[in-house]
């Protein structure tokens, strides 16, 4: 039996069709001090063949969203509302057993720091075999497994024989490639890549991102990139969601968001990011610190740090609304945000 590398288990979805819909997702962590509202009313749609980015600072809830999609949030995390529909089927109410069948086969994840979590005493190939044994619909014999892992390795730019080697024989970039191969092992429709290149040097990062882009195009895969590095998001994604304090504050085409962010937070975040191209700018610092999610501020969660905040922002929470061109913003005063990254004088 041969195992096709590209198997369309999505019932013939075409590029651009809706693959995954997240509707008003609410996930909170229960702690002794109360509920930490990590994901609050987050909605977005992922299309077939699309690369979507979730960007925000640490603690903004981007990883919590990802874990909720797989229902892998920590034990004290509860999905308190909303729907996660994969090909029309809601994953929130289904049993744990059923959920397990969707993991790896439909949605798989490249966890943050996964390249450092290889078991040092097993061969890399054997560790990927474990995923295949558990999740591949049919039982593969030895030769088939080798063949399959070899194919996967070829896909991520590794030598097929590398599967017989131990993690310590791999460089950081190779380990990350192997992690991606493992995530691809069961032909998922969606890969969630949580900070896939954060610990890598820029040259290796460039190679890995190119590889992911190529895989995405070749297999017509959907990828959700999660990163704090907005430059990485700018490079690899088609659409971007900006998160702040558990809320999606802006969502739209990556080009639109980066050329003219409409939410004050997104605008300030981009204005405070240094770059090696373009004029050398004085960057605008974002005053204050993110809120404590045990007790988020009333109204808009960004209002204590927002230069455009009004009385309305302090009381009434802005919904994520459409402002045209598939661009959504959760801000009462988005029209006041200057168009383009203009802040900061050239120095």
């Amino acid at each position: 039996m041969t195992t096709p590398l590209v198997e369309d288990s999505t019932g013939g979805l075409k590029t651009g069709d809706t693959l995954l819909e997240v509707d008003n997702l609410i996930m909170r962590y229960k702690t002794k001090q109360g509920y930490v509202s990590a994901v609050e009313d987050v909605s977005f749609v992922l299309h077939k063949g699309e690369a979507l980015g979730l960007v925000g600072e640490s603690g903004c809830g981007k990883t919590s969203v990802a874990l909720s999609l797989l229902r892998l949030q920590a034990d004290n995390g509860e999905i308190l509302g909303g729907e996660i529909r994969l090909g029309g089927k809601d994953l929130v109410p289904i049993s744990e057993d059923e959920m397990r069948r969707h993991r790896w086969n439909d949605v798989s994840m490249v966890f943050q720091g996964a390249m450092n979590s290889w078991n040092p005493v097993y061969r890399v190939g054997d560790q990927i075999k474990e995923a295949l044994d558990l999740h591949w619909p049919e039982r593969l014999n030895r030769a088939e497994t080798r063949q399959r892992i070899g194919d996967l390795f070829a896909l991520v730019g590794l030598d097929s024989d590398a599967q017989d080697r131990y993690p310590h024989e791999f460089s950081g970039g190779m380990r990350q490639r192997a992690v991606i191969a493992m995530a691809l092992s069961c032909n998922p429709q969606v890969i969630i890549a949580d900070e896939p290149t954060t610990a890598l040097d820029v040259i290796v990062q460039d190679q890995i991102l190119k590889e992911l882009k190529k895989i995405q195009a070749d297999l017509n895969m959907s990828i959700i990139y999660i990163s704090h590095d907005i430059a990485v998001i700018a490079e690899v994604t088609d659409r971007t969601g900006v998160m702040y304090a558990g809320k999606m504050v802006e969502f739209g085409d990556t080009g639109d968001i980066f050329s003219a962010p409409r939410h004050p937070y997104a605008w300030l975040l981009l204005s405070s990011t240094p770059s090696i191209v373009g004029p050398r700018r004085k960057l605008a610092p974002l005053e204050g610190e993110p809120p404590n999610l045990l007790d988020p501020p009333s109204g808009c969660r960004f209002n204590p740090r927002c230069p455009f905040a009004t009385d309305q922002c302090r009381v009434e929470e802005p919904p994520l609304r459409d402002i045209g061109d598939d661009h959504q913003v959760a801000c009462w005063n988005y029209e006041q945000v200057p168009v383009g990254i203009t802040s900061g004088s050239v120095v």
Partner: peptide, 20 residues
């Protein structure tokens, strides 16, 4: 090579190829 590998926060910017 190092400079051309640095991602740029501007989706319209085309980086030169990384030659290494």
């Amino acid at each position: 090579a190092l400079l051309s590998a640095v991602p740029v926060p501007d989706p319209s910017y085309q980086r030169p190829p990384v030659e290494i």
